[in-house]
Design a protein around this nucleic acid. Structure first.
Lengths: 201, 201
DNA sequence: CAGGGACGTTAGCGCTCGTTAACCTGATGG
DNA sequence: CCATCAGGTTAACGAGCGCTAACGTCCCTG
């Protein structure tokens, strides 16, 4: 992946600030004037870049879901064939943790403001999310064959809850460091999956 | 605990419906007219029972936090003295799971709408939440002495995220049954804590 | 039976918000 | 050198919101 070095476009600035504000105070809790102020322009100026407030949220949520799914598919393809299923699962976990630690506001939005979308956008996001979940379910069941499919699906959702708890972990600074936190979350996710099988215990 | 058999008061009806609506569409996304309609009266009629919309949210959040903390303290006292620390932790987990499964809308509100409260109410809720977390941290560290305090605190928050994932688990009906779900969550929580210690590999 | 409180109702006020309209400005390219 | 256009500005509109005011009705009690 080529790392971005050029300056972010205005659209990107707006999306980033909007994500932060939406995560902090909720979609309805943030006014367009505030979003504008956050990027140095004033309210209606945003409409040169987006069709409306809803469009910003839609682009954010679709982007998140797509990014997660794309990354997961890539990791699956990279580790394809010879790799132990454990390694594939570790790669998925690692990817999700990176996302949860680096883009906390987006993680918050992801399961909080979905209902504010137009029907078509919401269906799209839901479909991307479902694909992402099913991809995890398959890998988890390869690593833990004793796990029935419904239980595996519940386990995946629960581990997402665990990994997405990063916004509650205090500001980055009270944490024991990013690497240590990532390692802790990784161990816990693996432990949770391992304990999900009724046989183990 | 004496089980309620008498009819719920109007206040309780309102709180229950408000919790559901707030969880579904967010605090700002629900109008007082809707809350009123949900209990069969119309908008302004609510003001016979609550000082305002904010007051409903405050009462809900303070109630949740207090209930969680009170229940945890009771469980700790009941199992006091001779009990193995593992049994105490299991009791805490069980209590939290009961809450997460039986009061899903409240669980959703609990970490979503806290910022909408007046300063004094928010401080109160935060204090109750902190006490609840610290109580868990102590018990977890008794069960897993290898866990440093900051890591234990992060682990507790993460397990809360795991347990509070119940709203994402699909409507109760697609689930393999309440008991099975509770057992799955319980196993995963224990497994996550066990895997949190760096020593365990 | 009078009186009052509990619990509703509808009408409407005042404010905020998303959005549009109308206008301005600086860079760009034929 | 002028036309165009991207990207801003402020003013204002219309809708929806929380909340209050004013009023009605039932039921309980002295």
């Amino acid at each position: 992946m080529a790392t971005r070095t050029d300056a972010p476009t205005r659209r990107e600035q707006i999306l980033k600030e909007a994500a932060r504000l939406f995560a902090e105070r909720g979609f309805h809790g943030v006014g367009v004037d505030e979003i504008g102020a956050a990027v140095g322009i004033s309210g209606p100026g945003l409409y040169r870049h987006f069709a409306g407030k809803d469009a910003m949220l839609a682009e954010l949520l679709v982007g998140i879901s797509g990014q997660l799914l794309t990354g997961a598919k890539r990791r699956l393809a990279e580790a394809d064939g010879a790799a132990r299923p454990e390694a594939v699962l570790d790669s998925l976990i690692e990817g999700h943790i990176d996302f949860a630690l680096d883009d906390r506001p987006l993680i918050t939005l992801h399961d909080r403001e979905l209902d504010r979308l137009r029907d078509s956008d919401r269906k799209l996001v839901r479909q991307l999310q479902r694909q992402y979940v099913e991809l995890w379910v398959e890998v988890v069941r390869e690593v833990h064959p004793g796990l029935a499919e419904p239980a595996a699906r519940s386990a995946v959702h629960s581990v997402f809850g665990l990994l997405n708890s990063t916004p509650h972990l205090g500001r980055p600074g009270s944490l024991p460091g990013r690497a240590a936190t990532a390692a802790l979350l990784h161990r816990m996710a693996r432990g949770a999956f391992a304990a999900a099988s009724p046989a183990a215990g």
